[in-house]
């Protein structure tokens, strides 16, 4: 997953009446710009989706046309504040966004539900806890879904079945690409203990070390068991405990907590002259409360073509 550096645009939403209600974002430009083909009126949206690694909620950014997804990482060291125009913002968190391959977000759903059965994609990406998951359907990256799953039935039906072999080889390619970039950027990857990634050491580390480091980065977006399988698939030794490979420990750190959706009050914002980035809630559809019967029925219905596709509308 090469992280391409584009000139980041700083987008500071100033809200002088109530500076507590704003966040500071550093966002990659392409999420904010509308492509020429896009004629809709949407704005980039911040939504919560299920994180592919933890299964917990995490914050993501959809571009206006829903065609690209970026993850949002927030950085906070507690002793920081921002000057915004002529006021001081107490909350010194910095939110960074970087593009993410939407396939990583779909992967946990595919693994969970499509291992033994075939489900059309639009049914698969219905998550009652995270209703915005449906938006992934529009993201352009999903056309490569056949890299990790087999398409079954008609093209228009868009139904898939999870294929672990394909997934592993796809992940392997991702990891190898990432390792190449690590190598090209001369990033320090050896040493089990705490070593700065910018520490320059003489003597070049072997390929495996780069692969292992890259695997750690990729694993941040994989369920733990899949990460283990990938490790085996890459022929890497398993002796190193996972936690040292991962940049993020599995414990709940304050940083992860900051990814939780903010409460309603924080979301309410006054007028803004820049992009209104803090408005995930107002148009949140009221999710219909399904009782157990309806849920069971919907489950039974999965894997069927809609009946209307057989009959002509009159």
């Amino acid at each position: 997953m090469p992280r391409v550096k584009a000139a980041p645009k700083k987008c500071i939403k100033s809200n002088l009446q109530n500076p507590a209600n704003s966040w500071v974002f550093v966002i990659k430009g392409e999420a904010l710009e509308l492509s020429d083909q896009y004629t809709g009126t949407g704005t980039p949206d911040i939504v919560t989706l299920r994180h592919p690694n933890t299964g917990e909620s995490a914050v993501f950014l959809f571009s206006a046309a829903n065609n690209s997804v970026q993850e949002i990482l927030s950085f906070s060291d507690g002793k920081r504040g921002w000057f915004v125009d002529e006021s001081v913002k107490n909350d010194g968190k910095m939110n960074l966004s970087s593009p993410i391959d939407p396939i990583f977000l779909v992967l946990p759903y595919l693994r969970k539900y499509c291992s033994n059965q075939v489900i059309p994609l639009d049914q698969l990406l219905r998550d009652e806890e995270f209703p915005e998951t449906e938006r992934l359907l529009k993201s352009s990256g999903l056309k490569y879904l056949n890299m990790i799953a087999d398409r079954k039935g008609d093209e228009e039906l868009n139904a898939f079945k999870y294929n672990e072999d394909k997934t592993l080889s796809w992940l392997k390619k991702k990891t190898e690409k990432l390792a190449d970039i690590l190598k090209a950027k001369n990033i320090q990857v050896t040493g089990g203990g705490a070593v700065s990634a910018s520490f320059v050491k003489t003597g070049s580390p072997d390929n495996d070390s780069y692969l292992k480091y890259a695997h750690g980065i990729v694993s941040e977006y994989l369920m733990d068991d899949l990460s283990q399988k990938l490790l085996k698939y890459l022929n890497l030794p398993e002796d190193v405990p996972q936690s040292t490979l991962k940049r993020k420990s599995t414990q709940q750190t304050p940083q992860q907590e900051s990814k939780k959706p903010r409460n309603e009050e924080e979301n309410k914002s006054g007028s803004s002259n820049v992009l209104d980035l803090s408005k995930p809630d107002p148009k949140m559809p009221k999710t219909q409360v399904l009782n157990a019967k309806d849920k069971a029925r919907n489950k039974a219905a999965s894997g069927c073509k809609p009946i209307s596709s057989f009959f002509k509308k009159t």
């Binding site: 075939v118 059309p120 079954k152 139904a159 069927c304 073509k305 009946i307 057989f310």
Partner: peptide, 11 residues
């Protein structure tokens, strides 16, 4: 009653 068949597991 009309019911759509399940999509075949393996074609």
């Amino acid at each position: 009653y009309y019911l759509a068949p399940k999509i075949e597991e393996d074609e």
